[in-house]
């Protein structure tokens, strides 16, 4: 792939991610699993979730911290790995 291929792909990616919010700003963008939960309760109103999660993050802030850290840690490793293989190729000449 040439450089402009990467740039093009990243532009498409940005468009895909931002388009829903730009085009439909008034939706509530809830997680799909919560919606599924509502559907389950609608299909079977008597269903009783028979077990609760062991632990939940105490606040939205802690949850988003964990998310950000997760993405950062993964990206750091990917960056390290890509850096490693690129310099290795350069050193080989």
């Amino acid at each position: 792939m040439k450089k402009w291929h990467y740039i093009l792909l990243i532009c498409i990616l940005a468009a895909l991610i931002t388009a829903p919010v730009l085009l439909m700003p008034d939706r509530d963008y809830e997680g799909a699993d919560n919606i599924a939960e509502e559907v389950i309760m609608a299909i079977n109103p008597l269903y009783d979730p028979w077990i609760e999660p062991v632990w939940e993050p105490p606040s939205k802030e802690i949850e988003s911290f964990l998310f950000a850290f997760q993405a950062a840690a993964g990206s750091a490793f990917i960056g390290f790995y890509l850096g490693k293989i690129t310099t290795r190729r350069k050193n080989r000449g």
Binding site: P20, V21, R27, Y29, E30, G31, I35, Q70, A71, G74
Partner: peptide, 10 residues
Amino acid sequence: ALKMPSVTGS
């Protein structure tokens, strides 16, 4: 980790 908005509004 990348939760993204989608066309369904979720």
